[in-house]
Every structure is written in structure tokens, then in C-alpha cells.
Amino acid sequence: MTDDGKTYQGVAEIERWLNRAASEYTYTVELIGAERLGAADYVATQHLEGNFPGGTVDLRYRFALRGASIERLVIAP
């Protein structure tokens, strides 16, 4: 997965990213859009508000599925 220009691979790296992201800031999340881009490709857009730099942001979560698993995830404004 890629977030803030950094790529995280494997369960351990992604778990560390999740734990850091969840504990570093307090924020709310609202799903504001979702669309299917192809057979296994999707994008979901979420609006975040919180105590992080800037205070608000709309993030696009582009992901690809392989069966029931996420094969690739890119998070970007």
C-alpha cells in the first residue's frame, strides 16, 4: 500500500502504519463517494476532519481486489 508517497509491503509494515496513523491524530471520517473503475479496480473517497496539519482533507483510496483480498492500495488527496 502507498500513503504520503511511502510504500508499505507485507502484513507487519501495514500493521505498523495502521497503528501509527490511528494513534497520531484524532479525526472523523465520512465516505463521500465510491466508484468501480474496472473489473477489480475501485476508488473510494473519504472526507477527514481532525487535529492533523490542515485539519480537513478528502482522500482517494484506489484499490484493486484479488478475490476477497486487497491486492494494491494507494491513498492520495
Results as ranks from 00 to 15, higher is better:
residue 7 T to Y: 10
residue 69 S to L: 12
residue 23 S to F: 01
residue 25 Y to M: 04
residue 23 S to H: 05
residue 2 T to Y: 07
residue 15 E to V: 14
residue 29 V to S: 13
residue 30 E to Q: 14
residue 22 A to Q: 09
residue 23 S to A: 11
residue 5 G to L: 10
residue 8 Y to I: 03
residue 11 V to R: 14
residue 30 E to G: 04
residue 26 T to G: 12
residue 18 L to F: 13
residue 74 V to H: 11
residue 40 A to T: 15
residue 17 W to F: 11
residue 41 D to W: 02
residue 61 Y to A: 02
residue 68 A to L: 11
residue 30 E to T: 13
residue 3 D to A: 13
residue 20 R to W: 08
residue 49 E to I: 07
residue 14 I to G: 00
residue 53 P to V: 00
residue 63 F to E: 02
residue 20 R to V: 06
residue 16 R to F: 01
residue 36 R to S: 09
residue 36 R to C: 07
residue 8 Y to M: 05
residue 38 G to A: 10
residue 41 D to E: 15
residue 8 Y to V: 03
residue 66 R to K: 13
residue 44 A to V: 11
residue 21 A to S: 09
residue 75 I to V: 15
residue 40 A to L: 14
residue 31 L to A: 09
residue 58 D to V: 03
residue 23 S to W: 02
residue 32 I to N: 03
residue 22 A to T: 10
residue 36 R to V: 07
residue 56 T to H: 04
residue 53 P to N: 01
residue 40 A to H: 15
residue 20 R to S: 08
residue 20 R to P: 00
residue 37 L to W: 04
residue 77 P to R: 13
residue 7 T to L: 13
residue 42 Y to W: 15
residue 12 A to N: 11
residue 45 T to W: 10
residue 19 N to S: 07
residue 61 Y to F: 14
residue 59 L to F: 07
residue 44 A to S: 11
residue 68 A to Y: 09
residue 13 E to W: 06
residue 20 R to G: 07
residue 50 G to M: 03
residue 55 G to P: 01
residue 64 A to E: 14
residue 48 L to P: 01
residue 44 A to C: 12
residue 7 T to I: 15
residue 46 Q to N: 11
residue 53 P to C: 01
residue 14 I to D: 00
residue 12 A to P: 01
residue 35 E to M: 10
residue 55 G to L: 05
residue 21 A to W: 05
residue 40 A to C: 14
residue 30 E to L: 09
residue 13 E to A: 14
residue 34 A to Q: 15
residue 57 V to C: 01
residue 61 Y to P: 00
residue 8 Y to K: 03
residue 45 T to D: 06
residue 73 L to W: 11
residue 17 W to S: 00
residue 38 G to H: 03
residue 57 V to K: 05
residue 47 H to Y: 09
residue 54 G to R: 08
residue 34 A to S: 15
residue 27 Y to D: 00
residue 59 L to D: 00
residue 2 T to E: 14
residue 7 T to Q: 14
residue 58 D to W: 01
residue 68 A to P: 06
residue 37 L to T: 05
residue 76 A to W: 10
residue 63 F to P: 00
residue 70 I to N: 05
residue 72 R to A: 08
residue 36 R to K: 15
residue 46 Q to C: 10
residue 61 Y to Q: 04
residue 26 T to K: 15
residue 25 Y to Q: 06
residue 32 I to C: 03
residue 26 T to Y: 10
residue 48 L to C: 06
residue 14 I to Y: 03
residue 66 R to I: 05
residue 47 H to A: 07
residue 71 E to N: 10
residue 28 T to Y: 03
residue 10 G to P: 04
residue 75 I to S: 01
residue 6 K to I: 15
residue 1 M to W: 12
residue 11 V to M: 11
residue 50 G to I: 02
residue 3 D to S: 12
residue 63 F to S: 01
residue 58 D to Q: 05
residue 15 E to R: 14
residue 15 E to T: 13
residue 25 Y to R: 08
residue 67 G to S: 03
residue 59 L to M: 10
residue 20 R to T: 10
residue 76 A to V: 14
residue 19 N to L: 06
residue 12 A to H: 09
residue 46 Q to Y: 13
residue 76 A to Y: 15
residue 50 G to F: 02
residue 38 G to Y: 02
residue 41 D to T: 12
